[in-house]
Design a protein around this nucleic acid. Sequence first.
DNA 1: GACTGTGAATCTCTTCACAGCA
DNA 2: TGCTGTGAAGAGATTCACAGTC
Lengths: 301, 301
Amino acid sequence: MSPSRRPSREKRPRPAVPEATVARLPLYLRVLTGLADDGVETVSSDTLAAAAGVTSAKVRKDLSHLGSYGTRGVGYDVDVLLDRISARLGLTEDRGVMLVGVGNLGHALARYGGFPARGFRIVALVDADPARAGELVGGVEIRPVVELERLIEDYQVTIGVICTPAAAAQQVCDRLVAAGVTSILNFAPVVLSVPDGVDVRKVDLAVELQILSFHEARKRPDRSAEPRIRPAAPGTLPLEGAVGALSPDGATGSRPELRTLATEGRTLGIAPAERGDAEPAPTTAAGTEAVMRLATGSEGS
Amino acid sequence: MSPSRRPSREKRPRPAVPEATVARLPLYLRVLTGLADDGVETVSSDTLAAAAGVTSAKVRKDLSHLGSYGTRGVGYDVDVLLDRISARLGLTEDRGVMLVGVGNLGHALARYGGFPARGFRIVALVDADPARAGELVGGVEIRPVVELERLIEDYQVTIGVICTPAAAAQQVCDRLVAAGVTSILNFAPVVLSVPDGVDVRKVDLAVELQILSFHEARKRPDRSAEPRIRPAAPGTLPLEGAVGALSPDGATGSRPELRTLATEGRTLGIAPAERGDAEPAPTTAAGTEAVMRLATGSEGS
DNA sequence: GACTGTGAATCTCTTCACAGCA
DNA sequence: TGCTGTGAAGAGATTCACAGTC
């Protein structure tokens, strides 16, 4: 078969919304929902742009991909846009989501109350630890992993969220896919391999922090090199080098004129979580070798 | 100094690593760490690419931005790359991170044991609910929000993670910035406005799901409209095209030939999660109202 | 006058393909 | 021969700027 990946087949029946636009639609949707709640009936691309933190040109171009739903000289009808965007995102029929791995993070996600309102419902929770079966989290009962296939079938799940330790992720992914899931949100620190037709999005908090760190490094060349001006410190800061008094000028960072709506870094990311209690140092801590060591969970299936 | 932001102004002192590359460096870092652990000493761009789920051309171009650390005909020295990438990401000096809003998500993040290994340490936890002060999470004590400024000063925090409800996010952000934080990871569903020089990255799980939903919608036009053809077949996949049931062997799902390494949706990711005990419920659960409400933190001041 | 929709210019990222070196 | 490093081509995404419509 044609090995083409995402862009589906080999034809392009629809105008095809650019990926970059797709990534912003949820943002507009959120803003529009807020506006609708406030009773606002129309918005201009400028207003919407400001609220979403993007440029108005982007908003207009993005929306034009959905069709011409605006009125020149006036703006866009909030309800119409909400409708069109929701439709395009496929949120009209709420999709069932299965979450695998109810650890720290999985637990937090399962309890996140914002999903239903955003069009999703976690209909099934699965965990490898049989002892947890029966436990209720966010109103949904945790089921043993053996029931994974049956649950997907029963609830017609098409989206799976993997919150398992890295070691179990690929295996879980395989089962999800084999059972019919075609979209996966992966929180495990591994690159999942999936057959064509299956979409995977990855979220990694540590990566987000590292990207921020990169920019930090540019802003403050190297604090550890400078002499630390730290007198006696209260807390138990286990910090080693660090410290380089930054200009405490800071002042009140509330000056609209001075700020720019934070341009979305790139996309998402979200969270990780690790075992239960005091997480001991990573196993092979021995090595004095620097920086990394993926503290991927433990546990297999 | 010139307040130029990211794309710098009119000068370009450094070769400047492209943003897209910066976003992938953490990914390479993770793979390399794994290789180093396995005792591997050199990698070719092909191998690294496969493990990271990107193309080899990308790997080469990305790495070339860090300098020429490879050897033609041989490959790259794993340790050298680890060193160079860590340095470029500013991970050599571990940065203190403050997390604000210890609700569901914040709790999960605070307990995530993978950060230290990735170069970060949560040195301070702050929550608006004074009743929680003193509580230990992941080995760090929760402090009342009034101490935010002092803690940032004491621990020389430069990166802040916001896990508060949407309503409190901007306020918290302002305080973080005023106190000297220059990088923020925002989990609240709002667009934060910050002054120039401050970087913000946003993470929104619902958005990730919505993006997946968009692709789902393309794959399966509209289930609710069609009559469900659900017989009762076990391994039946309701998929239209694609996905030839992979061996449900579940074994070590590793069949490169049949799969494609999941192309990163956009950013990267990581994040495992493991068990943990029951978490306290977020305080303000009340509102049934619409769309947002980051169920994370517990109330904003 | 206000604001959308969109071609064209620009910029960024990716992919190609190959010269050059071990 | 094997693999890096990179110029050049190609693909996307963003920005510009303005014609078109209410």
